[in-house]
Amino acid sequence: MSEDEHDENSIESYPEEERASQEDSEEKEIIEKDTIPHFFPTYRINRKLYPIPIILAVVFAGILAYFSVIAGVKIEGGYFSEAEGGAAAGLLNGIIFTAMAVGSAFVMIYFVKKKGIGILKYVFGFSIGFITFFQTWFFAEIIMVVIFNLFPYTENLQLIYNIADYAILVPSIAILSIYLLYKYFTTENVRVKNFIILYVSFLTGAILGVIMPLWTTLTILIGISLWDLFAVLYKKGPIKQMIDLASNEQQLDEDIKQKLESGEVEYDTSKLEIGIGDLAFYSMLTSVALIITGNLIIMVLVAIAIIIGTGITIQGLKRNKILPGLPISIFLGIATMLISWGIATFLV
């Protein structure tokens, strides 16, 4: 008898619990986030599809990194050689690059306050044009080297290579760069903008992954991730200031803040904006994982860790207007790379 009563009560309670859950969901107020200018270098996408730009950036950067390995590219970036100075040199390189990023961010916010938010359109636009030209040329030459190496070397082959490079490749890339720069300045089409952001991000991630040695890479990624925390979360952080100025944010009253903290209200997270820097550093880490370990599985595991980290960050956007996209994803990615690399080395 008691078991029957218990079962009956349990069955009847389920609809009540579901109704209560639905009522809570319906009562929860959704706060729309202020839109930011279309010229901000962010990839805009539906929340459910957020892994897509990350996967695309990782895959294309990985392909370019792979071609670089086949072509035998050996360029050590950084101000100090890790071959001579080891981890200490990498640490110094990372500190210098992070300091440069910090300095440039404060310079930008200074000019924004002096000249207005519109100046960023030209800063971002011409930076994208510059990166598009030189980095596309860099990887196009690498792909050409791989193709031409399939044939025995002759003077005629070298002549064909030079003509293809300087008479065809350079003008074509220049036209492409100018066209993308023009579209960046003139169009508000989300798909066009997303293409430009994705293209520049995986080019940047690939080239950083190719030229930066291990310790320099790790120091840069950790340093930039920590800087990202400050720049986005601190009220005087340059990225937070730029977003606030761009969206004309009004200060939330204390009642709304308390409701956000308690979960009574939440921000709308149906649409996301992933920064170009986030995609670039994600693809940098996966490219490094592929080049240094030479293991495709490790690269895939790192990419999965990054996607999981991004998903965790997105959950926090319900109570925060903006969050740094790097720290959780990068730290999970680095940990995954080192652990899986260690396991793979031990097993071999």
Rank of each mutant, 00 (worst) to 15 (best):
E8N: 10
I11C: 01
S13D: 01
S13G: 00
S13I: 04
Y14E: 10
E18C: 11
S21F: 14
Q22M: 13
E23R: 14
I30C: 07
I30H: 01
I30G: 03
I31W: 04
E32S: 13
D34P: 07
D34F: 00
I36V: 03
F39R: 00
Y43E: 00
R44V: 11
R44A: 04
I45D: 02
N46T: 12
K48D: 11
L49N: 14
A65D: 09
A65R: 10
Y66I: 14
A71F: 06
Y79R: 03
F80C: 07
F80R: 12
S81D: 06
A83G: 14
E84G: 08
E84D: 12
E84N: 12
A89D: 02
G90M: 03
L92S: 05
I95H: 00
F97E: 11
T98E: 00
A99N: 07
A99G: 08
A105G: 02
V107Y: 12
I109D: 07
Y110C: 09
K113C: 04
K114D: 09
K115E: 08
K121D: 03
F124K: 03
F124N: 11
G125K: 03
I128W: 01
F134G: 15
W137N: 15
A140S: 15
E141W: 01
I142A: 02
F151Q: 08
F151E: 10
P152M: 08
T154H: 08
T154Y: 07
E155G: 07
